[in-house]
Design a protein around this nucleic acid. Sequence first.
DNA 1: TACGATATTGATATTGATTATCAATAATAA
DNA 2: TTATTATTGATAATCAATATCAATATCGTA
Lengths: 153, 153
Amino acid sequence: MTPVAKRKMEKRKRFNDYINKKHLKSTKQRDIIFNEFFNNYMGKHVTVEELYEDIKKKSPSIGFATVYRTLKLFKESGIASERNFGDGKARYEPIRSEAEHHHHMICTECGQIVEFANMQIESCLLQIAKLNEFNVSNHKLEIYGLCSSCGKD
Amino acid sequence: MTPVAKRKMEKRKRFNDYINKKHLKSTKQRDIIFNEFFNNYMGKHVTVEELYEDIKKKSPSIGFATVYRTLKLFKESGIASERNFGDGKARYEPIRSEAEHHHHMICTECGQIVEFANMQIESCLLQIAKLNEFNVSNHKLEIYGLCSSCGKD
DNA sequence: TACGATATTGATATTGATTATCAATAATAA
DNA sequence: TTATTATTGATAATCAATATCAATATCGTA
């Protein structure tokens, strides 16, 4: 099995566990959305609208609200994270592994998103939280500015 | 003059400069909102709604949309920053000085906001941006979790 | 396998924050 | 003072997200 396939399977297990724990049900629609999301949007930051439009091509009967609800469910179960880059639309991203934890640099001109990670920052954060007796559940770091292309002018 | 008053005056100058540069006009309403915002919300993170309700007590004729527009203007002129802590409402905060640049820890239970600053993180960020040839205009770092009180459960 | 309890779906209405519209008014420059 | 241009306040419109609800699907249990 490829590493990508393995990762997908791990997320699937985690999602199923969550479904069972909360006495929810697994449905065709959730399967379809799960597959679309984890096959085609790894490393991307997709809006609900975009994912809905994409899925509708293959499964026209699927409802708008269902995509909304399912992405929220992905987030609650810890297999996706919600981002908000200031354009008023929530974006969802499949969570990879702990080791692939990262942050974002967003070009305010062209919308390009560059991911980055930095161990030093992470350990600083944990230390600060500890000092304040803060029990961290998640954190986000975003840099806004002009990318190398847009910054030339 | 107290340091606080001096800071307010600096912001006032910067706002006036922006008004002039953009050929806008200074009005009674903008004065009222400016004073309320810089007198009572330094170090706070106020929503438009809250500020509007507050101002209405003293100046009942002031309009809802005007508060919205004026806070946006404060942001554009660089004397206030807009924050979004995930509850769907924009919050505005008077900008202090470069030296007082800071970030936020938000308790997801009680909404308490703790500010923090860290030079090490700042220099890491600048370095990362430089490596990616990214021209930074601003950045935000938010930690979500439970504060010491709420974490006890 | 069938039944009954419960969760989900899809269509649509509703909410809530923010923005646009516009006629009346206020501020600025000549 | 006048002409020009921006602002205001009230309200309508927009837009993302959520709630509602009858019909349907899922799942544990007999």
